[in-house]
Design a protein around this nucleic acid. Structure first.
Lengths: 356, 356
DNA sequence: GTGTCGCCTGACATCGATGTCACGAAACTG
DNA sequence: CAGTTTCGTGACATCGATGTCAGGCGACAC
């Protein structure tokens, strides 16, 4: 109603108002403005109202960082998230879940893509440390996280997701890679398969090794001797997965089922099966869900991870730590879910039942 | 080599060292430490070395925000990104592209999901403003962005992506929604189709209206009178798209081709076609690429957007503005690309050639 | 009427850094 | 060799806020 000056036109470059400007306009001291802005008690109703009006008039926005400098708890109300890539669908869903929890707590999230580069991991941590984040959620890439201990000692919590950290004892939230792989293989064995191929991700990735172990142990428990010819490791993209799958399927004794241990590898396997016209004859179960995996024919069965839950649990751990939880480090394992859609339920051909 | 104290065990809670601590240890003034840390000139080689050693010993990390308080340019080296959802594949790819440019400039990125909530847009801007971001990249949701003018006036640039802003004159980077839609329809017309259905997204979304307009204008140019029965708007998820598509396909005079104007809607249409066994008989072109769209049979043809380029261009605009570019607002349009995979090249059935 | 208490309020030091400036020593100039 | 410039350095004010503390004022009890 009562506008300060008649000038309502666009100012060229306005200085950002500070608490002092608001104080001056409201005719009070800065500390009183501070009290009103932060909802502290002991301010009379009409002083508060005058301050609020002045703040609104100047469109005042407090400077969170300036406040933190002096504030007792020194919280930046910001956390950092390190993932393989924010564009990776799995990581993106984890990110969304974390963001949801963060927003509830009034926190903002810095997300950084590491692209599996250990050096990027350290650089990202340093960049976030300079920005004084209150906590980290990290997908470990580096083979040793002990360099992070100094941050823990200074009271900045860290939670690892997807992979277990090495060299530090912190909370972690990971998928049940080993059990999930066993579930997949057990499912295929239950449909009569004995020649089950394994398409593995890069062996240097911990989760890939766990999935391979699950595959081998489940075969062993089923009394099946693994055929080394059917085990291919270190696949990381769909093109090489396609090539390898084609080769396996044209062996003299081809597999009757395939367990592919990762997203893109599953896509590559599907493509190979389609190219050879074998998609209805050879069973396939993938680890990790495939986008639009229910549009393909046959629809693709998978052992699905739960990125939403992983993200939520990880965020809850971080905020518990920020909130002062000093308990021992927790290892949380999120189970996988077998999604039955068709490709994994293709039975071993009758022709072969007699053989072997 | 020369460790300060013999104690290498884990300290319980160490205070974070400040510049003063480093100065004291190195036996110099704080300003000298500041000079070394920031690479300013006029420090003798061995003073600099002594300071660096002290900083390393204490594992000193400068506080970026404290520095900004006094620093002339006051840059937080942080930008804010508002998207529909960080879990949305399109937005996630845009995000990754922006992050790449940001990293080159030494910037970190705050990403926030709006879930198409106009109130969330304003809340997010306020949260980022309090954190003093140097620039914004925004997917507008609110129907009026004039409330952002104050930030522009204070020198914080803003670039809109995906949708044009309303009420402010700023840089924007958008897909050629109108032309892309025309391309899709032209492609279907070229394959003989005249009864082409349109499955539109929510009409309140600007891009959805543009795609509809492209559809209608291209039909008009081809001399085809649109059949209102084949135009369905306000679809936003795959379930409703499936239901609607099934209804259209069972009309007395069903469409021979479908143009679906969005990702999830395309998925819904595919599912309906598969359920009715018509996927090889009715042509389909979608707007926006579908993940694993080349695994479906027939492989799905789309008019693809270029999220990587959109993100990169948007980020470059923001950094140009942060760098002082005061030129007039630029509207950048990123063209779509028709991806021919099979579903869009199904010809109009011969049986119908005689008719109409 | 006076003393005590509690509520409001603002002056001032402070957070961790950078900008300004003055000072002494060394290097150059003529 | 005196005068000037340059270099290296640190004391100090300052950025925008909050924590501390003391003072003023009105209400209440005796």
């Amino acid at each position: 109603m009562t506008s300060m000056s008649g000038d309502t036109s666009t100012p060229t470059t306005a200085r950002r108002p500070t608490m002092r400007d608001v104080a001056r306009l409201a005719g009070v001291g800065v500390k009183t403005v501070s009290r009103v802005v932060n909802g502290e008690p002991n301010v009379s109703a009409d002083t508060a109202e005058r301050v609020r009006r002045a703040a609104a008039e100047l469109q005042y926005e407090p400077d969170l960082h300036a406040g933190n400098l002096r504030r007792a708890d020194g919280r930046s109300h910001t956390i950092g998230l390190l993932v393989s890539s924010v564009a990776n669908p799995f990581a993106a869903q984890v990110h969304r879940a974390i963001e949801r929890v963060a927003t509830e707590h009034g926190y903002a999230v810095f997300a950084t893509s590491l692209e599996d580069d250990p050096v990027a991991e350290q650089r990202a941590i340093a960049a976030l440390s300079r920005r004084r984040v209150d906590g980290y959620v990290v997908t470990p890439v580096h083979d040793d996280q002990s360099y992070l201990r100094v941050h823990l000692d200074r009271g900045t919590p860290l939670v690892c997701i997807d992979r277990e950290p090495a060299g530090i004892d912190v909370d972690s939230v990971v998928t049940s890679n080993y059990d999930g792989a066993r579930d997949a293989v057990r499912h295929l064995v239950a449909h009569g398969h004995r020649r089950i191929a394994f398409l593995g991700d890069l062996e240097r990735i911990q989760t890939a090794r766990l999935r391979r172990a699950g595959y081998l142990d489940e075969l062993a428990d089923a009394g099946i001797t693994p055929d080394p010819a059917l085990i291919v490791l270190d696949l990381h993209d769909d093109a090489s997965a396609t090539a390898v799958t084609r080769r396996l399927l044209t062996l003299p004794e081809p597999p009757t089922a395939i367990f592919s241990s990762q997203n893109l590898v599953t896509v590559g396997a599907i493509r190979a099966l389609q190219q050879l016209g074998l998609e209805h004859d050879v069973a396939l179960v993938g680890f990790d869900d495939v986008e639009a995996g229910d549009l393909v024919k046959p629809r693709v069965s998978v052992v699905a991870q739960d990125p939403d839950r992983i993200g939520r649990l990880a965020a809850e751990r971080v905020f518990a730590r920020i909130g002062g939880d000093g308990g021992p480090a927790r290892q949380i394992v999120v189970p996988t879910r077998l999604v039955v859609r068709g490709s994994g339920e293709i039975a071993r051909p009758e022709a072969q039942r007699g053989g072997s």
